[in-house]
């Protein structure tokens, strides 16, 4: 086997592992073994006879866990006493084409629509064209997230300088705001395109709790409002 193919294999192995860990951290149903698949197992499952890894075989779907469903359920309102969770099945696909245009994203959107997936994640080798990205808001409420392969080579949440981010449920958020007598606009903010916000798939209006190590206090928690 040549140097290039083995490099490509380990590259895709890392990407798949990070993607699965990301879904696990968001709260989807995945097993530990799946998230920490070994390179040998990866080769067995996803590499064909010629040694080239098959991106189409790497696609997977995952259901949200009950805890995740609870976290994403909005607070009951007078008009809507029994709100349903704003989350569902995620479908992850890895693009085998080197460049992505409108047609590819349209086809992926069509697939999400047909299979009734709530969220779609598309991992591409190069950035899609600018006009292709314009169709992402047009398919709401279906969520489509685009990740570049090179952004998933390393799991950024495991880096020692990245503090722990946890999403607050609407109930927790309400309690926090009451406890500190705040309006949500008075919280510090985090951008939606922040790498950790993208990792957790945060949406506008949610609040994340960020727990840092502190020399003086041991642990220090801060809260950020997603904008």
């Amino acid at each position: 086997m040549s140097e290039g193919t083995s490099q490509e294999q380990s590259r895709l192995w890392r990407i798949l592992r990070t993607t699965k860990q990301m879904c696990y951290d968001r709260g989807y149903e995945l097993t530990e073994e799946e998230c920490n698949i070994s390179l040998a197992d990866f080769k067995l499952q996803y590499v064909d006879e010629s040694g080239a890894p098959q991106r189409t075989r790497m696609a997977f779907t995952a259901r949200p866990t009950p805890e995740m469903l609870k976290k994403y359920t909005p607070l009951p309102r007078p008009g809507n006493p029994e709100p349903s969770a704003d989350i569902g099945i995620i479908h992850v696909e890895f693009a085998s084409e080197p460049s992505i245009g409108i047609k590819h994203l349209k086809a992926f959107a069509q697939l999400l629509h047909e299979k009734n997936y709530h969220t779609g994640m598309y991992v591409t080798q190069a950035a899609p064209t600018s006009s292709a990205l314009k169709i992402i808001p047009s398919i709401l409420p279906t969520v489509m997230e685009i990740f570049r392969e090179e952004d998933l080579l390393v799991n950024i949440s495991r880096h020692e300088l990245v503090p722990k981010h946890t999403l607050l449920s609407p109930e927790d958020k309400k309690r926090l705001l009451e406890r500190y007598r705040l309006k949500e606009t008075q919280l510090p903010r985090i951008r939606m395109d922040d790498p950790m916000a993208r990792y957790l798939g945060l949406k506008r209006g949610q609040v994340v709790k960020i727990i840092r190590k502190s020399e003086t206090a041991g642990r220090y928690a801060s809260y950020r409002w997603v904008v």
Binding site: I100, G101, T129, S130, S131, A132
Partner: peptide, 13 residues
């Protein structure tokens, strides 16, 4: 600029 986007898309295709 939209025409540039069109060229880009067609090349991808």
């Amino acid at each position: 600029s939209d025409l540039d986007a069109l060229i880009e898309e067609r090349v991808v295709d």
